[in-house]
């Protein structure tokens, strides 16, 4: 099983952004998806640095893909999505708008924000040219197993969310702007102070969600660290690590060791808990009753 680093969902300064991808060139991961997933207003801050980052990662031997936006509504977002198809790089479709611009038969990958819940959808995407599909994090292990079997017959590689705050929702409304009493069009980049999203607590002060502009994430870091063997057995080709602002080099090393057999689930979980924002892991979508549950390695 390989490791893929998903697109950075957060708003970082251009310098932080660049230094993240500079370091990632040295990390033990096979694939990197980059570009803007969440908010088109963020892209101009680092767009000029994208080509060099792609070049550096490619030179380091990584396979690189560019993500589409998760929700495309504005004219400039449609234009950017259309141009993505012409950029020449592999495109990760995270909104079907991107697929509408890809020439019939051109290969592409499908990101976790496209709803692939069943064999029929998988078969349709494979026929359209999908070579790799990262499944929605919401899917239970039984569905992952069924879809991985079906994917093998189509020559499609299946990827599963391995690590990161889970993308739970996307909206037309910016919650960061709303929190600051602003509208999205006049947001003044309210999200820039929260490089891992802003933790949202319940009235019992339980960490529950994290707001990230128009996106809502889980507060806990989704982690498939205890399901590695089951996912391998199912034929899953790759696990996705979603960026966090601190300690990500170490996260990559832990995951590499976990996949290579140098670390068991419990040891890896313990090491990861110390590194993730908020300090809590969850794997309930795969094996629990609710997404927020954590198996702590108990048999599924």
């Amino acid at each position: 099983m390989e490791l893929t680093v998903g697109p950075n969902p957060f708003f970082w300064s251009a310098d932080d952004w660049q230094s993240f991808y500079d370091r990632l060139a040295e990390a033990p991961v096979a694939r990197v998806v980059l570009g803007e997933l969440v908010c088109s207003k963020r892209l101009p801050f680092y767009a000029a640095r994208l080509p060099a980052a792609v070049e550096r990662l490619t030179a380091a031997g990584k396979t690189v893909a560019l993500t589409s936006l998760a929700l495309v509504t504005l004219p400039r977002e449609r234009k950017a999505t259309a141009e993505l198809a012409e950029a020449g790089a592999e495109v990760e479709v995270n909104d079907l708008t991107a697929l509408s611009h890809l020439p019939e038969g051109a290969g592409f990958t499908v990101g976790p924000l496209v709803n692939v819940y069943n064999e029929g959808t998988l078969a349709w995407l494979a026929a359209r040219g999908a070579t790799r599909i990262c499944l929605p994090p919401e899917l239970p292990l039984a569905s992952v197993e069924t879809l991985a079997r079906a994917a093998a017959g189509h020559g499609v590689a299946i990827e599963v969310w391995g690590h990161g705050r889970a993308p739970l929702a996307i909206s037309g409304r910016c919650y960061h702007a709303r929190l600051h009493g602003r509208a999205k069009d006049n947001c003044l980049f309210a999200c820039e102070d929260d490089p891992d999203g802003l933790e949202v607590r319940t009235l019992d002060d339980t960490a529950f969600l994290a707001m990230n502009g128009v996106q809502t994430l889980s507060a806990a870091t989704l982690s498939a660290v205890h399901q590695v063997e089951a996912l391998k057995a199912a034929g899953v080709a790759s696990l996705r690590l979603s960026p966090q602002s601190q300690g990500f080099d170490e996260v990559c090393r832990i995951w590499h060791a976990r996949l290579a057999g140098g670390m068991d689930g419990e040891a890896a979980a313990g090491a990861l808990e110390a590194l993730v924002p908020g300090g809590r892991l969850a794997d309930g979508f795969l094996t629990g009753a609710r997404g927020t549950d954590w198996s702590a390695g108990a048999p599924a």
């Binding site: 994090p137 889970a166 739970l168 979508f285």
Partner: peptide, 21 residues
């Protein structure tokens, strides 16, 4: 719905049951 429908798993995060599934 304030979230884009069909693209929200807040409910399954908290309860295990979602609009999509």
């Amino acid at each position: 719905c304030v979230m884009a429908e069909g693209r929200c798993s807040l409910s399954s995060w908290a309860t295990g049951e979602s609009p999509n599934m």
